[in-house]
Simulated scan of single mutants.
Amino acid sequence: MSTPRFLTLPPGVSRTNIETPRGSFAALEALPGSGVPERPPALLVPGLTGSKEDFLAVLQTLAASGRRVVSIDMRGQYESIGPDDPAAYTRAALGEDITSLLEALGPDPAHLVAHSFGGLVCREAVLAGAVRPASFTLMSSGPAAVTGPTADRAKALRDAIPELGMETIWQVALEPDYTGQGLEAEIIAFIKARTLGNSETGLICMANEILTAPDRVDELAKHCAGTNLRVLVLYGEDDDAWLPAAQAAMAERLNASKVVIPGAAHSPAWEAPETTAAALRTFWHEAEQNSR
């Protein structure tokens, strides 16, 4: 679960905006204690109904290794403004945003970490080949469209928004559910702000994108082999979006490193932050050593 935006951020973490030719993106930025990054930066991309705050529990730890670490709201998510044009929310269009963000974090190539639907988006950016990241981590993401209960929820969201609107969906379905889970009032307040801050057009279109994404794993494997781009597949042992077995098979097809996070489900950066951050730091260091 994410942390309310109005709580005090950890030392070294601040709210900012990343300016690109494709627009401004709301972000959380973490810097090392010295304030001077000595290692390549990292860009963290959230999933469909997520936001930059989903990475808050790992930002400080990741930055402590001497790098600038940035998590963002994608176009139309929470505090990043998005248009009402459905074409702005395809995987390819969102991937172009990621390319622009990677360029903005330069001149050094940035490590790219993509959670859930963000993995499908960032895969488009990597395959486009305009920018080569320092490494690519697929966190709790899968080879193609979601299936099962996750797909059912995405379909329900996509189909309900045009008829009811997010304000009504929040009041009728989401708020009672979160309240029933016993969440603190400030957590619910944050989730409400994030939920209603999303572009409804964006939610509809991105939900459709996660339901229709093709399997491009073989293309990605070929691209990464040709560019020597190292890939990590990281997921919780109890992931309930893409099955762990499907993610393990994807890692094998990609000839990628694989880390399974004990005690985590679909959000390891929040559910097991120290273990997740340690895995990312180790992988990033190996990728940097390999590139020399």
Results as ranks from 00 to 15, higher is better:
Pro10Ile: 05
Arg15Asp: 13
Arg15Phe: 10
Ile18Gly: 02
Arg22Phe: 03
Gly23Asp: 01
Ala27Gly: 11
Ala27Leu: 12
Glu29Arg: 15
Pro40Ile: 00
Pro41Ile: 08
Ala42Cys: 11
Val45Cys: 04
Gly47Met: 02
Leu48His: 07
Phe55Met: 08
Val58Met: 06
Leu62Thr: 10
Leu62Ala: 11
Gly66Gln: 06
Arg68Thr: 02
Pro83His: 05
Thr90Val: 02
Arg91Asp: 13
Ser100Asp: 12
Ser100Leu: 07
Leu101Ala: 12
Val113Ala: 04
Gly119Arg: 00
Cys122Asp: 03
Arg123Leu: 06
Ala125Ser: 14
Gly129Val: 06
Gly129Thr: 07
Leu138His: 04
Ser141Lys: 07
Ala145Tyr: 03
Pro149Lys: 10
Asp152Glu: 15
Arg153Glu: 13
Leu157Ala: 04
Gly165Arg: 04
Gly165Met: 02
Ile169Glu: 06
Ile169Trp: 01
Ile169Asp: 03
Ala173Phe: 09
Leu174Thr: 13
Thr179Met: 05
Glu184Leu: 12
Glu186Arg: 08
Thr195Met: 10
Gly197Asp: 03
Asn198Ser: 11
Glu200His: 02
Thr201Ser: 02
Leu203His: 01
Val217His: 00
Leu220Ile: 00
Ala221Ser: 15
Lys222Pro: 01
Gly226Val: 11
Asn228Glu: 14
Leu229Val: 14
Leu232Phe: 09
Val233Asn: 04
Asp240Met: 07
Ala248Pro: 03
Ala249Cys: 01
Glu252Phe: 00
Gly263Lys: 12
Ser267Pro: 00
Trp270Leu: 12
Glu271Asp: 07
Glu274Ala: 13
Thr275Ala: 14
Phe283Ala: 07
Asn290Phe: 14
Ser291Leu: 12
Ser291His: 14
